[in-house]
Design a binder for these strands. Structure first.
Lengths: 290, 290
DNA sequence: GCAATTACACGCGTTTTCGCATGTCCGCGT
DNA sequence: ACGCGGACATGCGAAAACGCGTGTAATTGC
């Protein structure tokens, strides 16, 4: 009736991963090892933790119980790791940052490069994604986010305000300018199935031509001349083949923040990055507002 | 920067055990293994967790940090184990009970024997000690305690009230009866450096002859005729060579309880023991009160 | 209806981990 | 001063854990 802590973690990963292979991937192990550990855990507890079904391992009630407790232990290790990281005064070793794909591509590359040059002993991992990584679970140490506030349990600094506006190809822009009453084709976000508010009333006719769930795709569609897209000023200005059109005057858009968990906010590497990022972004403010 | 959960546990045990050997004993490992795990933990974290001094391993600030978080994880595993145990509906496997030394010796032996006969598949461990074992940390599953209430987070059932009284050898008892004014020598608890309250006023002269921190020793001294001792009725009555003396009339004494953690209270083995214990103790009540 | 895929069990050879024996350093008491 | 015991380091052989390859059953896709 004595269970290894690592075996508890394995049980948790198997419940979470829903298959030996999934758990093994999360643990960085071969799936046979996961199977063996589960067998050992069940033997030492004398309780079945999983039902072996044809399509995989299905946790029993007891298995879920173990997994839930292990999850709390994992939260504890996350807290510990953050605490250790927050104490770390060195400018060596790994640092993971995350930012929206397009912000990295069009704005942040220089400051990332500058940081790597200045601190060659830091091995910087950049996770360019639009998903919000969980800083509590240490998926990243520092995040640059577009949002209205830094969020709970996170510490943040507002880097700049920004605005959005409407963009299209020069040809389409000219056509609309020539005939403001023609119907304007919009390319919009999938979950925002409407023409943007506050469009200039000189352009009375609109329709939604297509929707995407990804800004890269929206921009590509706009660059292909398929319609007008609303996007942050920095993005439209940095995109070849697009010009700003006056249909939608510059609108408020969520601010850009740099955020980190409170525990790691003061870590040397996190501070060093921030101290390079903040003045850099201050110098770039003109890109973001009209 | 990835630390095995078992290594965290090892760090905690080393901080707690204060030497490789102490930690190894707690973990059931060889001390070399502990040393290796600590070295591995430090390597993977890149932080010194212990200072190697000539007289052993001294935890650094970071080591204490790790140990504190591991302690919280341990509490979590304890909770889990109790939960699993509470779900256990079998009457097989280990069951650990604890009770005061003298209560086992003079009262409980028959019911313990009865239980072992009735449930031969349960391997019962009895921890006869006056220390209060920590039921939260699963040092025992069920405890029989002499106290005024079951205590926080524990569930309990009052088995019987009891009283204390004064006991001495028959010779000493006669001598005092012959001359109530002679000075009565008392043998008392070390931390209770006073003659018991509520002594019969017919015996006006008292002095404390000696103190002990252990009831077995007090009884032995009384049996050797060194003086009068206050003890629970059941104990004095069951002790060869002692008779009750009327100096101290029967006094209230803390009740006897059976207690267990709430999580394991309803476990099959715990219930089975309780269901044997409760009627047994009911039958023994006359032993405990005048 | 048959190939491809997913998910797992099993056996074998390798790597890692572990326990034991030995050696060193140091403080302590005689 | 010298022996003794506690606490740790080190090297070696044994044991445990692991990864890989193969085999099987059920499901999916064409």
């Amino acid at each position: 009736m004595k269970l290894s802590w690592d075996d508890m973690r394995t049980v948790m990963c198997l419940v979470r991963g829903e298959s030996l292979a999934g758990a093994a991937a999360e643990l960085g192990l071969n799936y046979t090892t996961v199977a063996r550990r589960i067998a050992r855990a069940e033997a030492s507890l004398g309780v079945a933790l999983f039902d072996r079904l044809t399509d995989g391992y299905q946790p029993t009630e007891a298995g879920v119980l173990v997994a839930n407790h292990a999850a709390k232990m994992e939260a504890q290790t996350d807290t510990l790791m953050r605490a250790l990281q927050g104490r770390d005064a060195t400018l060596r070793g790994p640092l993971t940052i995350t930012a929206p794909q397009l912000l990295i591509a069009h704005v942040l590359t220089p400051v990332i490069d500058q940081f790597c040059m200045a601190y060659p002993d830091v091995d910087l991992h950049v996770r360019a994604t639009n998903d919000l990584l969980d800083l509590n679970r240490r998926e990243a140490d520092l995040a640059i986010r577009i949002s209205r506030d830094p969020g709970d349990s996170l510490k943040g600094l507002r880097l700049t305000a920004q605005q959005s506006a409407s963009f299209a190809t020069p040809a389409l822009a000219r056509a609309i300018a020539d005939d403001p009453t023609r119907s304007v084709d919009w390319i919009v976000y999938a979950d925002y199935m409407a023409v943007p508010k506050n469009v200039d009333p000189s352009y009375p006719n609109h329709r939604i031509r297509m929707t995407f769930d990804d800004m890269v795709a929206i921009r590509a569609a706009a660059q292909a001349g398929l319609g007008v897209a609303r996007m942050p000023l920095f993005l439209g200005r940095a995109s070849d083949g697009l010009v700003q059109v006056p249909i939608l005057p510059p609108q408020p858009y969520p601010d850009i923040w740099v955020v980190a968990h409170r525990d790691v906010w003061a870590a040397a590497k996190v501070m060093a990055f921030r101290e390079m990022l903040v003045p850099f972004m201050r110098g770039q403010r003109a890109q973001f507002i009209a």
